[in-house]
């Protein structure tokens, strides 16, 4: 090879390596220290709602009537907010000036049952009981492969699952991976209100996953039909057709909500 060509080749390689290295240095390490270090989300974030059970009845009734998702029950016997129906639009907080319902910046929202999603006087904070799923943790605690299926999802939930794979959240450091085939999966992440047109494909994907398998419903659509709950074109919540192990509410849930739920429910770490 003539010497000029070698020099030119050398120059190109150097430039390329320089750009790669400089970018690498500039980017540094960006992975969050969560869960070892707490993360605080900034103020306007609407996370876990806090209910003031002492609020006056008129305000509560106003919120109940005006909730676009009919997620609020307020009468003399019971005051409750169903996280599965709620889309965190903040209407009740605005109408009650935060005196009845106030959205905190707490992103821990997931539960293992539908009942736990209903916040009331006996159940103020949604939580996952670590005892109930010892078997699952034993099986999947250090390695969990999940298949994601969008069944009528609006792509917000999907996008916020996708970011779990970016270097900031880095889901795979907990041994959890999202895989391409149901045959390789231990379970399914379902988003969307299950459009009737997707029902068959969803059930076939479910069947293709080997037993034992787990189902995670992500977003208010997958839990209750979300904003589409009145539509005749959707099935509604996942648990109408499949058994659900984990409910992660939100519209869409913040990636940290999903991350925390997966760690709490599965991880041995």
């Amino acid at each position: 090879m003539p010497i000029e060509m070698l020099e030119r080749f050398d120059r190109i390689v150097n430039q390329r390596v320089n750009k790669l290295l400089l970018n690498r240095l500039e980017q540094g390490y960006r992975t969050t220290k969560y869960p070892n270090v707490d993360v605080n989300l900034s103020k306007p974030y609407r996370g876990r709602p806090e209910i003031n059970f002492e609020a006056d009845m008129i305000t509560m009734k106003l919120c109940e009537e005006n909730c676009p998702q009919s997620a609020i029950i307020a009468n003399s016997e019971k005051k409750a907010l169903n996280l599965g129906r709620c889309v965190f639009c903040g209407e009740c907080e605005r109408l009650s000036d935060g005196k009845f319902i106030h959205f905190t910046t707490d992103f821990s929202l997931a539960t293992a049952t539908q009942e736990d999603l209903v916040l009331c006087e006996e159940n103020v904070i949604p939580k996952i009981e670590r005892e109930i799923n010892g078997k699952i943790r034993k099986l999947f605690g250090k390695s969990l492969q999940l298949r994601q299926v969008s069944a009528g999802g609006c792509n917000a939930c999907e996008a916020d699952i996708n970011v779990l794979n970016t270097p900031f959240f880095d889901l795979s450091r907990f041994g959890i991976q999202i895989v391409a085939s149901p045959r390789h999966a231990d379970g399914m992440l379902i988003t969307g209100p299950i459009s009737k047109n997707m029902k068959l494909a969803l059930l076939k994907t479910y069947e293709a996953i080997p037993d034992p398998k787990i189902i995670i419903a992500i977003g208010s659509c997958a839990i209750s039909g979300g904003v589409f709950y009145e539509s005749s074109e959707v099935v509604g919540g996942v648990d109408r057709i499949l058994p659900v192990d984990l409910f992660i509410p939100g519209c869409p849930p913040h990636p940290l909500t999903t991350l925390k739920a997966l760690i709490d429910y599965f991880s041995k770490y």
Binding site: S150, G152, N197, A201, E230, S231, S232, V234
Partner: peptide, 13 residues
Amino acid sequence: GYQHRGVEKLICK
């Protein structure tokens, strides 16, 4: 068509 949720119908309804 798999994601059809009847949005337009829902708005009119």
